[in-house]
């Protein structure tokens, strides 16, 4: 995995997408695309050659958990690293996301350091 990695950031709030995009730029990842919910993201993932998915949970249309399940159920996408970045903080939800195959879970509000740590950890484990 290199700094050329292609990210897809999925969040219904454009401000949050901008924040994540900026943080990824600061970390040296310049190739970042955006989607506002799972329904928009899934066709993008299927058509594009994305390396990493960062998704919110609570979104109109297809929520992040369903997107995660769809990714894991697709032959082409199932191995993609997925980081859930969400305000959903119920224990049962975190367990559910873990069972659905999430690679990392960051709760909002978050810090730049936390995001970097989780990204690094996921990328490290995939080397």
């Amino acid at each position: 995995m290199s700094k050329d990695m292609k990210f897809l950031v999925v969040d219904d709030f454009s401000t949050m997408r901008r924040i994540i995009k900026n943080l990824l730029h600061d970390l040296g990842y310049a190739n970042v695309a955006e989607a506002d919910d799972g329904n928009t993201a899934l066709p993008m993932l299927l058509q594009g050659d994305y390396d990493f998915l960062i998704t919110d949970w609570n979104m109109p249309g297809m929520p992040g958990l369903d997107l995660l399940k769809a990714v894991r159920a697709d032959a082409k996408l199932k191995g993609m690293p997925v980081l859930m970045l969400t305000a959903e903080s119920k224990r049962e939800q975190i367990v559910e996301a873990a069972q659905a195959g999430v690679n990392g879970y960051v709760i909002k509000p978050f810090t730049a350091v936390t995001l970097k740590e989780k990204l690094d950890k996921i990328l490290e484990s995939r080397k």
């Binding site: 609570n58 992040g64 969400t86 305000a87 959903e88 903080s89 119920k90 939800q93 709760i107």
Partner: peptide
Amino acid sequence: RARGYGPAVPGVDHGPAVSGQ
């Protein structure tokens, strides 16, 4: 549940939520 509950609001949301990262 699948859609999510939204951010936890202190004093309103009770239940087994995590307290931080």
